[in-house]
Design a protein around this nucleic acid. Sequence first.
DNA 1: ATATTAGTCTATATATTTGGTATGCTTTTA
DNA 2: TAAAAGCATACCAAATATATAGACTAATAT
Lengths: 141, 141
Amino acid sequence: MISKKTKYAISAVVYLAGLEHRNPVLISEISKERKIPQKFLEAILLDLRRAGILSSKKGKGGGYYLLKSAEDINLAEILRLFDGPIALLPCVSLNYYEKCEDCVDEEHCGIRDAFLKVRMNTLELLKQSTVANIVDMEKNK
Amino acid sequence: MISKKTKYAISAVVYLAGLEHRNPVLISEISKERKIPQKFLEAILLDLRRAGILSSKKGKGGGYYLLKSAEDINLAEILRLFDGPIALLPCVSLNYYEKCEDCVDEEHCGIRDAFLKVRMNTLELLKQSTVANIVDMEKNK
DNA sequence: ATATTAGTCTATATATTTGGTATGCTTTTA
DNA sequence: TAAAAGCATACCAAATATATAGACTAATAT
């Protein structure tokens, strides 16, 4: 399961991407619209900003807005940012690889092989799921 | 990531399935061979027995042995037993379904749609990964 | 029958993660 | 220059993960 934090992050980004404009949006507005605890959301938005997905403007009329275009943000990126590895086992992870302590022959490990396939497939699907695609789907009801 | 418990469970079952015989095997032997803390392993084996995957024999000459045949045990089953849902979101889970609190239209939720595809794909792959397949792969190095 | 072996059950311990809350500081701009 | 808004730090409670300890129960070989 993904954490609530990750789900909130996706939800917030999708919200911003779904707006017609790209003007700064108040944290309080996002919090209210997507039902995310405001203070918790602040930390999430900060992380998204540090990751270069969002940007923010301070002062009156400030808020958060999309920095990357919606086509260039995918779920794999957001998931990794908050939940870490997408792989189900460290030994099949691209970004968080760790060898199993007692592993003799990684190439021929049947367990690893199974989870490797799962990771490759999941990653592919998550990469295909761009924020633009998600917004599109929701508009075309 | 799957929990260590789940990984230990898979490891133990694969070990038993890889043996030529189907005689009872001591907990201490499994613990030693697969480097699993013995007391922790005891609890895991109990769960596997309750789930009908293993059976045990008490007294001298006792131990644990495979009850189901290796072809009939797959990773999805073991994973669900220890880690619960395979889905990444409650609203796409088969066995642990929960509606999102603020969900308006589940059918047209883009986020859900993405994670639904992931779950379907992952489940399919995990079901295909039977313990027999895993053992096979390890024997054919 | 009984000693021994081995599985079973209950309770406890500890570390980490999750999901927040509270408070105050800094920066921007109308 | 004051108000608006983001930024940073610290703290906290509950849940979960990862075990460990010890007593108890059941089966079987002899």
